[in-house]
Design a protein around this nucleic acid. Structure first.
Lengths: 249, 249
DNA sequence: CCTTCATTTGCAACTTTTTGCAACTTTAAT
DNA sequence: ATTAAAGTTGCAAAAAGTTGCAAATGAAGG
């Protein structure tokens, strides 16, 4: 088993179970514990998992309780959320992906707003339900516990039935050539369906995500209607995106 | 079980019950009392809980909680939940309705249990997701905010695709002639579909609901396999149900 | 096909962390 | 005050991690 192969397997197993143990991985992959440890070390350096004594935990596992979400990026997300909410008007149908930026938006939604939100993100769902005037539609399917979103064929086909006004994507990576990219196949498929099901697509990204890319393409740049970051729209980093025809807020 | 995992589990259990006892945690996690004590010590040092003789309390404990459900019926629900959990075995597919008795069951699920739960109840969903070994499938559709369950044609058709081993119904009214009845048309349709989609149907009802009825029938008595109340199965109130061929627990 | 070179892997010796046990002390409840 | 349950402390065994090193592997070029 090749190194890349092993590491992909580790991440996949983490995705399924939220944790992996050293000894289990040895048995699975037929390598020594030392090698597994080295793989885990590399992956933790790359920020893909949290190494603990005896194994590793998924990032999401930690997020739930142990990590006080980085205050610095938190304030950026608040800024982004405020701008994003300005796009939503009464009686709209809105599709939202998962991700912490989307959650921030869900928290800020003004109580007067009357709209219908459609999502497979469980944390977002909980916030929408608490809102007095928002209708909620859940995209049902198997729940991926690490990312706490529903994934699968049924979720996909349900999204394809939707005709939404807006689609908000929490974005992992955005780049001029490659558009929006992500690293989880299931998430990519869902986001792609969301974009296709919406009249307008809004990309929410903190500035660190700009000009970076991951392995799998969600959509090309020209399919995005709005790009929202915490920066001033006149910031020179954003000008290439403006020139590409995107409304930058 | 990894250390971080154990500690996360302890905090999770505290969230549910506001207290944990040493011995219970030992049994849950399969470690010695010393280890549990050390975990509690670390968590208390980190300010995540309050350690007391014999266990620990959640930080929120000092806020006196006036639960909407009175303490009296709460303890009945705990009893029912404990009996109900005895019916669930590893690798089963379990359908659950909404309702507070079902929620109590979700809170008590033993951490070792490996099963797949299918539900449209949002509060139940949140509890299942927090469980370490349970797979969750969400029945998606429009959310009824009052009852916090998904309702609609799509939810119905999804349930009809399921082949579950067990179906747990939180019950509003049960009666010898009319079987299980309810007063909300959408809920009745969902429960009916759930019964049809499961090999066995389990009816959870506090004793006040016995021998009462509502306007709409979910199913006849003979379609119920198990009836669980907080009473002793030999209680004379329950004998007519035993005679009707139901296993009363 | 072979050689070379960098990388990867497993092993061995050693350190650290984790865990359960035993002896003893403290707590709380009758 | 008595007693059983819980807590503490010290300790030793087991598990996991670390480091250095040599063998194995794989890619690149001849």
């Amino acid at each position: 088993m090749l190194k890349k192969e092993r590491q992909a397997y580790i991440l996949h197993k983490l995705d399924l179970h939220n944790k992996v143990v050293n000894t289990g991985l040895c048995a699975d992959m037929g390598v020594s514990e030392d090698t597994v440890r080295r793989d885990l070390y590399e992956l933790s350096q790359a920020g893909k998992l949290i190494k603990v004594h005896g194994g590793a935990l998924s990032l999401a596992f930690n997020e739930v309780r142990f990590e006080s979400t980085n205050v610095y990026s938190q304030s950026k997300k608040v800024k982004i959320a405020e701008k994003a909410i300005g796009l939503i008007h009464n009686n709209m149908y809105v599709l939202t992906s998962g991700g912490t930026t989307i959650l921030e938006m869900a928290k800020q939604l003004p109580p007067q707003l009357r709209a219908t939100f459609i999502t497979g993100s469980i944390p977002a769902l909980n916030l929408y339900i608490a809102h007095p005037n928002i209708n909620v539609i859940v995209v049902g399917d198997k729940v991926n516990k690490a990312s706490r979103i529903t994934v699968g064929a049924s979720a996909l086909s349900k999204i394809r039935e939707v005709n939404a006004d807006l689609c908000f994507l929490g974005t992992n990576a955005i780049d001029l050539q490659r558009g929006i990219t992500d690293n989880d196949w299931e998430v990519v498929e869902l986001k792609r369906a969301m974009v296709a099901a919406s009249a307008k697509t809004v990309c929410l990204a903190i500035s660190e995500k700009l000009n970076s890319f991951e392995a799998l393409q969600v959509c090309a740049l020209k399919q995005i209607d709005y790009l929202i970051t915490e920066l001033d729209p006149n910031d020179k980093v954003l000008q290439p995106y403006v020139e590409a025809g995107i409304t930058v807020l």
